[in-house]
């Protein structure tokens, strides 16, 4: 254990840009505790590791799990990107990016390819990730079986026994009732052939990007105090049946701004007569597409 004296005199504390706080806000022993949890999570892909989540200066449910994970793995050389709903410019993404800029002084970016750590809520970037990147997910409810079984004691037992009949029945009932699997986001996956895992509330469009992803994927649920992980190049299969295979969302039309046909689109209401348009949810990918086509950047500013 690091003693208090070492913790206070730690070099990082002297270097921190925010006076009175350690580098990346958390003290070093907390970071070490979280990193130990992450190591266990990587060793047992998809297994939810309990950890002593800290109170962060942002509300629970607003990304404190992801923030604690990022704070534990970030170093001075890292380049950080933060997205929410696929965009770098949504208010909570701005707030989290500022928090890390203020407490670590690391370089931040909006470009997926330049980032070494990408913290995300609800999306996986469209740009493929590489081995030098870590994708950190903010997770509100880590337990994929929670809606089927409210008790944590029970769900942990079900995972331990690999007893996933409940989930199969749910999917079967969906097909019976609707003719399709009626889960549009937070679509459960099976990791490395063992644990059923919540991918966090990403649209199911993004699920295939998790499979054999070269980047390390870390998940933090602050309020529920759970960590889990998908190591690089791990099998991640979205749950389905042979005769009702998993499918992703599709749109009839391309992105109205960049013309992309194979990205996740947000629907934007244009006026009160109900006219609407579809645009890329990943604002960085959309801007890159437009730049490639020589279109000018548009903004409110």
């Amino acid at each position: 254990m690091m003693t208090l004296q070492q913790d206070i005199c730690n070099d990082t504390r002297k270097k921190t840009p925010l006076e009175g706080y350690n580098f990346a806000y958390l003290d070093e022993s907390t970071k070490r505790m979280i990193r130990r949890g992450l190591l266990k999570a990587v060793a047992v892909p998809g297994y939810q590791v309990p950890f002593a989540g800290r109170e962060m200066p942002m509300p629970c449910g607003w990304g404190t799990g992801g923030i604690q994970v990022t704070a534990s793995v970030i170093g001075e050389e890292d380049v950080l990107k933060v997205i929410d709903q696929g965009s770098d410019d949504t208010t909570n993404a701005v707030s989290i990016r500022r928090f890390f800029a203020g407490t670590t002084g690391v370089e931040t970016t909006t470009h997926t390819a330049e980032a070494t750590i990408i913290q995300t809520r609800h999306r996986i970037p469209e740009h493929p990730l590489n081995e030098n990147q870590i994708l950190v997910y903010q997770v509100p409810l880590p337990e994929p079986l929670r809606w089927l079984e409210p008790s944590e004691k029970e769900t942990r037992t079900l995972h331990a026994l690999e007893e996933y009949g409940l989930m199969n029945v749910k999917i079967y009932e969906d097909i019976m009732r609707h003719g399709a699997i009626a889960m549009s986001f937070d679509y459960p996956v099976r990791v490395n052939g063992r644990y059923i895992m919540s991918p966090s509330p990403i649209p199911r469009f993004d699920n295939p990007k998790m499979h054999q992803c070269p980047a390390l994927q870390l998940f933090g649920a602050g309020r529920e105090k759970r960590l889990y992980a998908i190591p690089p190049y791990t099998d991640v299969k979205s749950l389905d049946f042979e005769d009702y295979p998993f499918e992703v969302q599709r749109w009839e039309e391309p992105c109205a701004l960049c013309g992309a046909r194979h990205t996740y689109l947000d629907e934007v209401v244009l006026d009160d007569t109900g006219r609407r348009m579809f645009v890329c949810s990943d604002s960085d990918a959309c801007a890159e597409n437009r730049a490639r086509q020589g279109m000018t950047e548009v903004s409110h500013e």
């Binding site: 607003w62 929410d84 609800h122 509100p140 549009s184 969302q249 949810s281």
Partner: peptide, 19 residues
């Protein structure tokens, strides 16, 4: 925190539900 987190944008999930 969790009750009020529904103030955060949920465009992506909402779009997924709509479709």
């Amino acid at each position: 925190g969790f009750v009020q987190h529904i103030k955060l944008p949920h465009y992506v999930d909402f779009q997924a539900e709509l479709s």
